[in-house]
Design a protein around this nucleic acid. Structure first.
Lengths: 182, 182
DNA sequence: GAGAACATGTAAGCGGTTACATGATTAT
DNA sequence: ATAATCATGTAACCGCTTACATGTTCTC
């Protein structure tokens, strides 16, 4: 049987503070979004299931100048489940990098196509690296490092990955261009 | 509508030579397996669908000392579909790195747990790096580089990724150990 | 009035894994 | 015998995206 990992992602976020489904998605998009995505089609049904299992409780909150929202709060049982999941070794797969698949089959297309994919990836990663570095600067400014140790570790992964991607794109583009000029 | 990427992966492999479903999985596991996986539950039904669409044809092959096999061969129409897919820009997502998710939530577990995940990842990546480097050496020996240009590019991705992973694991383990000793 | 952001959900339908089911052949 | 490898498939079941559906409030 396969583990529903979305529920643990939601649990982990709720462990920090109570949130609505809508807020959860926003938080995901600007924190773990570069290595973990969730859609509303997953978030809302899973929050419901988590509540049924007693991992979270919800309250309707009235807001001024905004629609009501349903805020979910993790329970003791939810925290225990999260802790148990954190102890289990993470799985490496599934992993599917479509750009590598297209590159791998590059001999069945014109080299210009592979170069174009690489250049697009390169410009994208350069942008992302800039974003990550700015976030890191912000974290460094406003508080003790130890409080954000785990955010910093994952952020550093993103920075290293982007740097590797950039170097690899540049190198590969050069290889392909050299091949073109032959 | 979502694209069935498995079919293009299969198409790309069949573009090099005709193969059975069983052979395809073996090829995947020791070439693109580190960034792309396929299970039999995907391979066989998809080959069938591809045949129905005219992307591939199949013949039953009798073998000596082995069970019969059904070999699939790409058609002209299949090659056209592959070429058209290769031109379309690759998508970055979905991407889900479970180890990062567990690390990100590390503050809800003992630091020892995060360290253990990192050490396990580290030893695994060290092994993988060794494997990749040996493959690269083999490729370098037996033929012209240009023939394997695209394999080399994806392999270099794997090498760079493993190196980044190793550096990141080491750095993160140190950070967490320093935190422990406080 | 239009558009953007806030907010919550459901339904259809494919994607994908895991387990099941079967059987041949070889090596130990 | 029995385990391993070769070989092909199906079925159940959940994962997950996309599209649909609805409604509020604020800003321009």
């Amino acid at each position: 049987m396969k583990e529903n990992k979305s529920q643990f992602a939601l649990l982990g976020l709720l462990a920090d503070r109570a949130m609505s489904g809508y807020e959860i998605q926003k938080i995901i998009n600007n924190s773990i979004g570069f290595f973990w995505q969730e859609s509303f089609g997953q978030i809302y049904p899973n929050l419901k299931k988590m509540e049924e299992k007693g991992w979270a409780g919800s309250v309707q909150i009235e807001q001024e100048g905004r629609p009501d929202k349903k805020v979910f709060k993790i329970t003791k049982s939810g925290r225990e489940e999260l802790a148990a999941w954190l102890k289990r070794p993470p799985e490496k797969f599934p992993l599917r990098l479509e750009i590598l698949l297209k590159l791998f089959f590059g001999n069945h297309a014109k080299p210009e196509i592979s170069i174009q994919h690489l250049e697009s990836e390169l410009s994208n990663e350069v942008k992302m690296l800039e974003v990550y570095k700015n976030i890191k600067k912000e974290i460094g400014k406003c508080s003790h490092e130890s409080q954000n140790l785990y955010s910093l570790i994952t952020l550093d992964y993103g920075i290293g990955l982007a740097e590797h991607n950039i170097a690899w794109c540049k190198k590969s583009i050069q290889k392909l261009k050299k091949e073109l000029s032959k």
